[in-house]
């Protein structure tokens, strides 16, 4: 955690996410408008009354983007957590137990990996009908754990060989205790990378599903804002604010999450770290203090 706070990428990423979270929580104080109801004339350009303009049916875009952040964050982190939990449990169990259990789980994992995710989600969501954010989070959790299970399994296989696991086995420790208290803490960095990656995936996918018209249109979320704007041909009629606002919100959150992702990657894999030393090195070479 300390190393995370020292990393510049991580700090910027965390700051972006924190900003969005604070704006989402403080939404009722930042805007007087109800995001769901008509509060002005349709497609009004940004003005003092409506900072980011209004939608085709006269809802306030600023209010919608603030409240929508709540949905994006909750679905992102909720589904991300679900994906990570399923992937981690399956990965550790199959890696540690080995044998038949491993064969079965690995087979399913590999299978899920080659069935394209978005088309599968489209079919699921289409049959479910208008999927609310909670339902979207659930189906994401059910279908997107495979990558996490695979990398966690690989890591478990190497941890399993370590002496402390062997000694716990010798002492007759129960299997679930070994997995929970010996293996899990040692694959935590993979779990962390998996979690952040899953959150990014969940945010993007939720927005995509809703944009394609598979979400519950009553839910206030960035994906639904895009869907509504696209349906209202916002770009063609010149209502750029209606479409660019959720665009930038999503891009901003995506960039924040990715910065965090890369920072965690660098911390888990020291070879990728650049740090300060290369700068110091160049300076010394330039000053004639040495060479290669």
């Amino acid at each position: 955690m300390k190393t995370l706070l020292k990393n510049r990428k991580a700090l910027v990423g965390l700051a972006i996410i924190a900003t969005i979270a604070i704006l989402a929580i403080a939404a009722p104080w930042l805007t007087e408008y109800n995001p769901a109801t008509r509060t002005g004339r349709p497609h009004q350009a940004p003005s003092m009354d409506h900072i980011l303009g209004t939608t085709r049916i006269g809802q306030d875009v600023f209010a919608r983007v603030l409240y929508g952040a709540r949905t994006s964050l909750m679905v992102g982190f909720g589904a991300g957590l679900l994906i990570t939990v399923v992937g981690t449990v399956l990965g550790i169990v199959s890696g540690y137990r080995g044998g038949k259990t491993d064969e079965v789980i690995s087979f399913f994992t590999n299978m899920v990996l080659v069935v394209p995710n978005l088309p599968l989600l489209l079919v699921l969501a289409a049959f479910i009908g208008q999927a609310s954010p909670v339902v979207i989070a659930l189906i994401l959790g059910a279908t997107s754990w495979a990558w996490g299970a695979r990398v966690t399994r690989a890591e478990t296989l190497s941890v399993k060989q370590k002496d402390f696991v062997k000694s716990a086995e010798m002492m007759g420790e129960k299997q679930w205790r070994i997995m929970a208290f010996e293996i899990f803490p040692n694959v935590i960095s993979i779990v962390g990378i998996n979690f952040i990656g899953s959150v990014i995936f969940a945010i993007i996918t939720q927005a995509t599903l809703e944009f394609l018209g598979l979400g519950d249109p009553r839910a206030i979320s960035w994906g639904n804002m895009l869907f509504a704007a696209q349906k209202a041909s916002a770009l063609s009629v010149g209502a750029w604010w209606e479409i660019l606002t959720p665009c930038f919100a999503l891009a901003f959150l995506g960039i924040g999450m990715s910065l965090l992702n890369f920072a965690v990657d660098e911390i888990a894999n020291p070879r990728l770290r650049t740090g300060n030393r290369l700068g110091r090195w160049s300076l010394l070479v330039r000053n004639g203090e040495g060479r290669l």
Binding site: I200, T208, L226, L244, A251, G254, S258
Partner: peptide
């Protein structure tokens, strides 16, 4: 690369459409 990968395809396409198309 970080920025390009982290922006959802929906967003990238809409922005490209807005800038170069409209």
């Amino acid at each position: 690369s970080i920025f390009a990968t982290s922006v959802p395809a929906v967003v990238t396409s809409l922005i490209v459409l807005f800038v170069f198309g409209f």
